[in-house]
Amino acid sequence: MASILTPAMEAAVGKDGEPQSALVERGAVERFAAAIGDANPAYPDVAPPTFLRSVGRAIPPLPDAETAPRALDGGSEWTYGEPARPGDVITFVTQMESLVEREGRMGPMLIATYLTRYTNQRGELAATQRNTVIRMPAL
C-alpha cells in the first residue's frame, strides 16, 4: 500500500506553532465544570485539570492533511504545575513532536504526537499536555 506520510509532513516534525494567549474566564471555567458534570466546590475559583485544552491549542498546520482527513483522539498525558485560575492569561504553544505511519486494522494510519506547554502571566508553567492523534485516509 502506498505511504500516506509525505515529505512535507515529515518536515513539519519538531516545529512549534505560533504561540497564542488567552484569558481564563470565570464563566468558561463554570461552563466547563458543568459540562463534565463535576460539582467540586473548588470550581470555578480554580480550573479543573483538563480545562486548559479548552483555552486553546496552537497546533501547527499539518501539510498534506487531506491524505488522511479522518482524525481520532488517541490519548492525552498531562503534567501539572501552577493551577490555572480565572483571570490568568495563559500563553500556549504546541509542537508536533513526532509523526509515524502504521498499518492498522483498517489500513494505513498516521500517529502524531503534539506537545502543548501552557504558561501563566507570571511565566510559571501551568501544565503540559501531550496529545496523540490518529489520522486515517478518507473512506
Binding site: 459540562a35 463534565i36 463535576d38 485539570p49 483538563t50 485544552r53 481520532l72 490519548g75 492525552s76
Partner: peptide, 15 residues
C-alpha cells in the same frame, strides 16, 4: 470526546 473521558478520570482523582 476522548478529552471528556480524561476529564472524568481527572474528577476521579481530584475527588
Amino acid at each position: 470526546h476522548g478529552a471528556l473521558k480524561s476529564a472524568f478520570l481527572g474528577q476521579l482523582m481530584t475527588d
